[in-house]
Amino acid sequence: MIAFSTLDGLVAPLDRANVDTDAIIPKQFLKSIKRSGFGPNAFDEWRYLDHGEPGMDNTKRKLNPDFVLNQSRYKGASILITRENFGCGSSREHAPWALEDYGFRAIIAPSFADIFFNNCFKNGLLPIVLSDTVVDDLFEAVEANNGYQLTINLAEQKVTTPDGQAHTFEVDAVRKHNLLNGLDDIGLTLQHVDAIKAFEIKHKSAQPWLFN
């Protein structure tokens, strides 16, 4: 997994609540057996005017001029700010894969759906919860200022605005450590092989029917 330490990035606004994972990456792209290449189809139904299917040359498709991320001022954005319950719906990890492949490294919202939130950490994508008021202010600032950037420091758990205002955010200590160091969860868990085996023996003797 790619490590995440600090990020100075252009911010793009997506002013909608309850953005679901079907919107982030529509189902037809889930037929892929790979874990890369989803970026050009992130937000496909909002982003393009035609209907997208796997295998199309996305550079030739007509962009929807009304979709905010298509505005030239947000080109190259690596931080997305959005509204409550971002990533609700399906557990498809293709959603964080698509966002990461698009170029986002961090997403700021007042709240996230649980499974999506969890999936982000497995992919070097940092979901940050800030209060409704702070998010409101950030939306205003992004819309008012071309090229609006934020600085994110994971070690210090801070989002800093261009005028030096710092907003702290919470992040679970284990997730923070793994993300800072780009650690693979499986490798970490396998350090506890003996504990897993010991548990399994005990569990099997208590509930043998689980092992039939």
């Binding site: 557990s91 964080p96 969890n118």
Partner: peptide
């Protein structure tokens, strides 16, 4: 690896959906 895994909780089980990285994690560990 499916959000509607919550269905199985009907049996007094702890059941939930996971992402693909976690699918791999459960397979391996």
């Amino acid at each position: 690896g499916d959000s509607h895994t919550s269905t199985h909780g009907a049996f007094g089980a702890l059941a939930h959906g996971i992402g693909t990285s976690e699918v791999e994690h459960v397979m391996a560990t």
